[in-house]
């Protein structure tokens, strides 16, 4: 084998290594990225959505998913305090604690959300939404992957206003192509 061929093989191997590292890095850093949320409030009622609320809902919902994904990956229930309240927080906290007990964790690769407002209370104190979420989900037992699938799920979401943000009060999967 000539020197040029050897260098080519080495370069290819190095490029492959770089790609592998990049893929691993992207997976690891997935929870550090804010998921993409497309929000539509065209069919919401009975109260029309205010301009500021129209901006805050997708922002806060995206941040809620980011913190949820991070909490479930790093087994840190404290992260749920920022964007969850009520039953949603209770349920997710229970799930993280049970993950800790079983020595498990999950990792999400979030591919985006289509969020649609379906009910905005007349007093402006609650909003119900429907989300079509697309994520890749990996479930780990210790360091071993026991599940790795793309999933497409519909959620019914209940959000209520907090002091400076909207909080997720209920997050309930209701179906999807792969429920």
């Amino acid at each position: 084998m000539s020197a040029a061929s050897r260098y080519s093989v080495l370069a290819l191997a190095f490029a492959g290594l770089l790609c592998a590292v990049a893929v691993l890095y992207l997976r690891v850093s997935a929870s550090n990225e804010v998921p993409r949320v497309e929000f539509s409030a065209d069919n919401i009622g009975p109260r029309p959505v205010e301009d500021l609320t129209r901006q805050h809902i997708p922002r806060d919902y995206a941040l809620a998913w980011q913190t949820m994904e991070q909490a479930l990956e790093e087994n840190r229930p404290d992260l749920l305090d920022a964007y969850f309240t009520g039953f949603a927080k209770e349920d997710l906290t229970k799930r993280v604690n049970r993950q800790i007990g079983a020595g498990m964790h999950v990792r999400y690769q979030d591919r985006g959300h289509k969020l649609e407002g379906i009910f905005y209370a007349p007093a402006g104190d609650a909003m119900e939404l429907r989300d079509r979420a697309q994520v890749d989900l990996q479930i780990y037992d210790g360091g071993k992957v026991i599940y790795d699938e793309p999933i497409d799920t519909q959620y019914i979401v209940l959000m209520t206003p907090g002091a400076d943000r909207w909080l997720v009060r209920k997050l309930q999967a209701v179906g999807g192509e792969k429920p």
Partner: peptide, 13 residues
């Protein structure tokens, strides 16, 4: 075998 059940608020192993 090991059975796992992962739900909205539960993890069984």
């Amino acid at each position: 075998a090991t059975f796992y059940l992962i739900g909205p608020a539960s993890v069984i192993k």
